[in-house]
Design a protein around this nucleic acid. Structure first.
Length: 300
DNA sequence: TCCATTTGACCCTC
DNA sequence: GAGGGTCAAATGGA
């Protein structure tokens, strides 16, 4: 892994941690909009981290000399630890297998992953509080598709689903849908990230015209939207400035800002896309890498 | 009637 | 023999 990759990954991991902290703080309020945006940030960063991890051959190189490297290695180990905690499969897995961890709202249905599955069994697993469900592709009979998956609720957190995918989809429809949607998903994800950047730039611009520049020097590239304020009036603050209040840390934007409104709406609509294609994620480096992301935004 | 889910029994691996 | 994975009959809903 080159030093630039290490730096990018290190920065992403730190951003991920910040966003998670932000999300946890927001969970204590009733600000759905800001919570959704925070989850979007976490989801985007987690995807990028996992993709970047696939570039790591073996262990991380120690090329960074500042304290960040310690954080970087620690986080890598945390990701790897989750993988090691996976229960060992007794039977040899045919082909490849990948494991994803999906966070859902309590009682919500399993998120749609772009394929149709038929449940063929359920077993109580030793040491697990919840049973493991076994699914195979609906097209197993007519198209001989051998894809299977196992779904199990996490004992520690019932809102988290551990999903293990076994085998590849060979059913033609899924492959066609997958190929057709892959470029679309790539484009969609990129546009979502671009809009987030534009939103942040816009906020920076607004802040320079409404706030003492010196007080905004440390304004980070993450924002908090406080929806508890009056309609059409948002308050932004740095996650490093806590708590969010109407104090000097907050920036009040004028109401009825069509550009800002469009940016926010676009970002939210992108994030509410109902399709979450796990094959797509595996394609971009998640094979055999446990991934955790929050799909609860789909059930809001 | 068809299809998906449930569930007990059986099979396989360790 | 224990435990995980799969089969297939029973069941229920559309």
């Amino acid at each position: 892994m080159g030093s630039s990759t290490a730096i990018v990954l290190s920065e992403l991991i730190q951003l991920h941690s910040l966003a998670k902290t932000l999300s946890d703080q927001l969970n204590q309020s009733q600000v759905e909009l800001s919570r959704t945006i925070a989850r979007d940030i976490i989801f985007a960063i987690e995807k990028t981290i996992c993709a970047a991890k696939t570039c790591i051959p073996g262990e991380a190189e120690h090329e960074l000399s500042n304290g960040r490297v310690q954080f970087f290695d620690k986080t890598i180990r945390e990701f790897d630890c989750r993988e090691q905690k996976m229960p060992k499969k007794r039977k040899t897995l045919r082909g490849w297998a990948s494991h994803v961890r999906v966070s859902t709202e309590e009682g919500a249905e399993m998120p749609h992953d772009g394929h149709s599955w038929r449940k063929y069994g359920q077993k109580d697993i030793l040491g697990a509080k919840y049973p493991r469900a076994y699914y195979r592709c609906t097209h197993r009979k007519n198209r001989g598709c051998s894809a299977m998956k196992q779904v199990q609720k996490s004992t520690e957190n019932p809102s988290v689903l551990d999903i293990t995918y076994l085998g590849n989809h060979t059913c033609s429809n899924s492959q066609q849908d997958y190929s057709a949607s892959k470029s679309h998903l790539l484009d969609q994800h990129q546009r979502f990230l671009d809009r987030q950047k534009n939103l942040i730039k816009h906020l920076d611009f607004q802040s320079q015209h409404n706030q003492d520049p010196k007080s905004m020097e440390s304004f980070p590239s993450s924002v908090v939207l406080d929806g508890t304020k009056a309609d059409n009036e948002f308050f932004f603050s740095s996650p490093l400035m806590s708590p969010v209040s109407t104090g000097s840390n907050c920036l009040s934007l004028p109401p009825f800002d069509p550009e800002l409104d469009e940016l926010i709406s676009a970002a939210i609509s992108e994030a509410e896309s109902p399709v979450m294609d796990f094959d797509f994620m595996r394609e971009f480096g998640m094979m055999d890498v446990e991934t955790q992301f929050d799909t609860s935004i789909f059930f809001a």
